[in-house]
Design a protein around this nucleic acid. Structure first.
Lengths: 208, 208
DNA sequence: GAGATACGCTACGGGGCGTAGCGGAATGGG
DNA sequence: CCCATTCCGCTACGCCCCGTAGCGTATCTC
């Protein structure tokens, strides 16, 4: 990912092979799942030699992280005009992403693998977590401009804690609902969840 | 799990072997992680034949679900005297469970596998999700008795939606914070999270 | 050109998978 | 008591995947 801009001597690596491998990884992941995904099969589908894969990625999990990171970059946060609309929007678009088989399979698999792999944990943080916090920061800044949220605290660490909390609550709830509880994230759920997030449990528990 | 109480004819299965296998699965999971966990290694550690494993579990993922389900049953919800204390309590005890290597590795791995395995998805729902909703139901009932939350809606489906939402938000946020963001769930985080859950984003964003 | 690096291909030892077949052990029914 | 039934541990097997090494070739920089 962090490409070395200094062109080393010798034949450069094929960018076409990179794309073919990552594409093949995603499609293979959909068809056979994580545990039956093999490096040899990815190479066959991509039309490259197995050794070409191992020159770039040492393990299946690292390959899969890169293959799905680009999917998460497609997430956008169009201005919905209100904090409520922005939250519902990001919930629904994140849920749509998690409906793609390659995204959900890959995300959970690499997280599982990362629990016993420190290097993979770092790779996930930089390639996925830190990159997507931009969504929270954007929505928060807009809400502050509209006067829907108080301005930044004098303590920047305090601000970061709140941003991290919001990110974990939104992403965690959507993932848990979609993949663990195995229930649909639809407009009704997004609306109730947003009420809970903005106004608290009492409001969300009210009959109407 | 759903043992057939009618004793079939012939030699019964060894309960000791069952326990030895599940214990060996957990300890092996801690040491080698999910992807390198092999049926043969589990059998060797448990002191049973590999064929004995395959008579009980057709796949590694099903074995692991049963091996960790018992860990989740240990979760308790002692009465903290207030809704806030109860929420903080369940957050911290769930986080403590997820600090156990075998619990977090197993949970994420079986969820990943379940995205391409319908039968496993059902097994997770019955063995983990539905069983642990008791914690939300208990805390909610207590809060209603104390007058901290409105009583049940006339519509039972509405009540179920709210309970499911709370469960996904709490469990999802703790899992995401612990395993994806890879940050500690300590008392301070639990307190801020609980404020967000009970009073909404405005209160949690306030400088003090 | 010369050196360096990437490529595709082939081959290999190692190891896990899941199954089959064996003799023996533990149970319940006639 | 004897027999059918089922489980057990053990061994062996074919299959597939792993990750690496070696080769000749292609493509870049100096």
């Amino acid at each position: 990912m962090a490409g070395c801009p200094a062109p080393r001597r010798g034949r450069p690596r094929s960018a076409a092979a990179d794309r073919a491998i990552l594409d093949a990884t995603r499609t293979a992941l959909v068809e056979v799942g994580w545990s039956k995904l093999t490096m040899g099969e990815v190479a066959r589908r991509a039309g490259v030699a197995k050794t070409t894969l191992y020159r770039r990625w040492a393990a299946k999990s690292e390959l899969v992280v890169d293959a799905v990171a680009v999917l998460f970059d497609e997430l956008e946060l169009p201005d919905g005009g209100s904090l409520r609309a922005d939250v519902e929007g990001v919930v629904l678009s994140f849920a749509a992403l998690l409906r793609r088989p390659e995204a959900k399979t890959a995300l959970m698999a690499v997280i599982a693998e990362s629990t016993t792999d420190e290097a993979l944990r770092r790779r996930i943080r930089t390639a996925l977590v830190e990159r997507q916090k931009r969504l929270v920061l954007d929505g928060r800044a807009r809400a502050q401009q509209r006067g829907e949220l108080p301005g930044d605290s004098a303590d920047p660490a305090e601000t970061e804690r709140v941003v991290d909390l919001i990110f974990d609550v939104i992403a965690g709830a959507v993932v848990h609902r979609s993949l663990v509880s195995d229930c649909p994230v639809d407009g009704a759920w997004a609306a109730t969840f947003t009420t809970l997030l903005l106004e608290g449990l009492g409001a969300a528990s009210a009959p109407r």
